[in-house]
Amino acid sequence: MAQAVPRRRATTPGGARARNTPAWVRWPLIGVSFGFVGLFLVMPMAAVFAEAFRKGVGVYMDSLRDPDALSAIWLTVLTAAITLPLNIVFGLSSAWLIARFRFAGRGLLITLIDLPFAVSPVISGLIFVLMFGLQGWIGPWLKGHDIQIIFAVPGVILATLFVTFPFVAREVLSLMQEQGDDQEQAALMLGASGWKTFWRVTLPNVKWAVLYGVILCNARAMGEFGAVSVVSGHVRGRTNTMPLQVEILYNEYNFVAAFAVASLLTLLALVTLVVKGVLEWRLAGEAQDAEESTKGITA
C-alpha cells in the first residue's frame, strides 16, 4: 500500500463491451480476480488482526502500551507531522513553478521530482548515510559540531522526506496543467496581488489534489521501511518507527506484539483507502469542471 504510485483513474464506460462477453469467459475471470484479491490481500490482512488478538484484547492493549511501542508510534507520528507540511510547501511551489513558467532546466526538474519513485528506498537511505555518516562527506564536520543526523531522529525525517517528496508535487502539477492559468490571469487583471491570487484562486482550485497527495504521502511516511531502516540504526525507544518496531518484535518471536503494532499500520491503510476513494471522486469532478469550462455547456 505504501508503495502506491498516485494515479487517478477515470471510470471507464466499458459496460457495453462487458455485456457482449460470453458468461463462460466472464465468470472465470471474475472468479480469478476475486480469488487473487482474497488470497493475497484480504487473507493477510485478516491474519494480521487474528494474530494480534490471539491472546486476547488485554495482551493486545499491553503490547501497544509498551514504552518502546509507544515511542515508535510517537516517532512515526512526529515524522509524518514534520514531513507533511514541508511536502505541501515544496510540492505546491514546485508544481506551480513547473506548471506556470517556462525556464531552462524545467524538463530536468520534472524528471528529478520523480527520482524518489525510481530509486530503491534502501539506496535512498544509503545516500543520506554517505552524506551525513561518519565516513560521509560532511559527517566529520557534523561530528565536530556535535550534530547527529544518521542513527538519530533527523536522519529518519530526512529519509522520509526524500521518499515522500513526489506525492503532493505530482498530484498538484497534473491538475494545475489541466486547469491552465486563465483564472490566475483573470485575478491579476482584476487587481489582485500575487499573494491574494494564490490564496483566493490558485489554492482553492487545487485543494483536493493537495489533500489527495497528503493522504498518499502520509501513508508512505508512516509505512516507509527501507530508507528509514538504513538511517535509523534501530535504537529501541529512540529511533524506531512503527515498521521497524514490527520487524524487531517479529525477529524476537514476540508475534502478538509485532502483529499488534502491525494492526495499527493496517488500520491506517484502510482509512487511507477510504479517504483516497472519496478524494478521487472529488478530483474526478474537478477535472470534469476544468474540461467543461473550456468547452462551455449550453443550456
Binding site: D182, Q183, Q185, A186, M189
Partner: peptide
C-alpha cells in the same frame, strides 16, 4: 477589464 474566450470564471 479582460474577458477570456473560455470565461476563466473562478469555479469555486
Amino acid at each position: 477589464g479582460f474577458v477570456f474566450q473560455h470565461y476563466a470564471l473562478f469555479k469555486h
